[in-house]
Simulated assay, not measured.
Amino acid sequence: MDDLSPELFDFIAARCPDLPRITGGRRFGTGQSNPTWALTTEGAPLVLRAKPPGKLLPKAHMIEREYRVMAALADTPVPVPRMHALIEEANPLGRPFYLMAHVEGRIFWDPTLPEVADRAAIYDAMNAVLATLGGLDPAALGLDDYGRAEGYFHRQLAVWTRAYAASVEDPDPELVDLGDWLADCDPADAAPALVHGDFRLDNMIFHPTEPRVIGLLDWELSTLGHPTADLAYQVMQWHLPHDGPLKGLGGVDRAALGLPSDAGYVARYCARRGIDGVSDWNAWLALSAYRLAAILAGVGARAEAGNASNPESGRAYGRLVPELVELGQRFRRRR
């Protein structure tokens, strides 16, 4: 069960008497951030998600924020699992964790969707969730203090510049150059929006038979910001090679598979949001590549230090950093 113990199950039973008693657990083998377990119980199954062990970067692995935002979204059209309990006090696991309902459905790991007949419908379902998320009023959800929306572009640049510097001893000069260029960009602000922070296909659970998202997961990086951020981050990742550790759509004939083009996906999003278009698009794409490069540099560093949820794939993700730097530079040149 890897870190789970009968003592932990007894602790949860005492702390959360309304939940069914836990009888066992199985750790999910994927994911690089917060280790997660499927729990069997005497009733409905549960999921436990915890901070990783060891020394962590400041403000990283914020499962407390994950719990808060998903609890706030419970009665909105954005589908999230039901939250049960956040445990921050001392416990047998030795670190904070939360418990949520298990959502039974499909997770797609390959963006070409080889197992799906109507691929366009799956992408349109993602688009619908993203547009709905971008249109929510954070203040109405009690999340008006969840972050600072103004100046989001440059604050994100600063956050990931600091994170990258804290993760590596020898910075990539091309990534530093991209960061310097991004610092000179000046995209317009927008009304405050809830930003997921890692909006992509494999962070969603789809209905077992219908092209419908029933759970949007992994809110660790969520904050208040600019709605274009999630859209650009998702589209940016499609430019990664399909045969890489983070499967993109690079080299894939999207039209032949019924998958949307970048322009088509953005246009559908804008139609749903009732907006005319997206300004400063390539700057947002370049920031997304820069941000992911900084994140994966940290993942690779944790893997090398023996402090990653999945060390082997963590090292593979770390090796993607130069490719993301080049991708960001390509978006820069398109501007």
Rank of each mutant, 00 (worst) to 15 (best):
P241K: 02
W37S: 03
G142R: 12
V78D: 04
G300T: 07
A166R: 15
G24K: 09
W284D: 12
N307L: 14
Y317D: 03
R15F: 05
Y146L: 10
D262C: 06
W160N: 02
D10C: 08
A271L: 14
T112H: 03
L285M: 15
L287N: 07
Y67V: 00
E210M: 11
L246M: 14
H154C: 15
C16D: 10
A166S: 15
I122C: 01
A286W: 13
L216Y: 02
D170N: 13
R21I: 09
T161N: 10
L217T: 02
R319N: 07
R155S: 06
P79L: 06
G328A: 13
E7L: 11
A293N: 08
R333K: 04
D172A: 14
D230E: 04
H196S: 05
V168N: 10
Q32I: 07
A38G: 13
L296R: 03
E169G: 14
A121N: 10
R333N: 01
H207L: 04
D18F: 08
L240F: 03
V325I: 02
Y265W: 15
D172Y: 10
A158Q: 12
I12W: 10
G151M: 12
L259P: 01
L216F: 03
Y317I: 03
V80G: 00
G300H: 07
A125G: 11
A305P: 02
A165D: 13
R106Q: 15
P241W: 05
P45C: 10
A149W: 02
P53C: 09
G135A: 14
W160I: 08
Y152L: 09
G215R: 02
A44D: 12
C270M: 10
Y317M: 13
M100S: 00
N282I: 05
L157R: 06
A90W: 02
V299D: 11
A121E: 15
P17C: 07
P173H: 12
L221D: 00
D110T: 03
D230H: 02
S313N: 04
H61F: 07
Y164E: 04
L113Y: 08
D170M: 09
R82C: 07
V321G: 06
V235F: 00
A74H: 15
R119F: 03
E64T: 14
R148Q: 13
A190D: 09
P79M: 13
H61N: 15
N34F: 05
G306M: 04
L48R: 00
I122E: 03
S309E: 00
H226F: 04
R302F: 04
R333Q: 15
T36K: 08
L4F: 06
E312M: 10
S5T: 15
L46P: 04
G25T: 14
L320R: 02
L48D: 00
R26G: 04
L19W: 07
G43R: 05
G215Q: 04
Y265N: 06
M236A: 12
Y98T: 03
L48A: 01
Q234M: 14
L246W: 04
E42H: 12
M126P: 01
V213W: 02
R65F: 08
G250S: 05
E312R: 12
A120N: 10
L48S: 00
E304A: 11
N91C: 13
T23D: 13
G225K: 01
L48N: 01
A165I: 06
D124K: 11
G94H: 08
P45E: 11
G105E: 11
V266P: 01
D180A: 14
N307G: 02
P77L: 08
G197L: 08
A183D: 11
L249E: 00
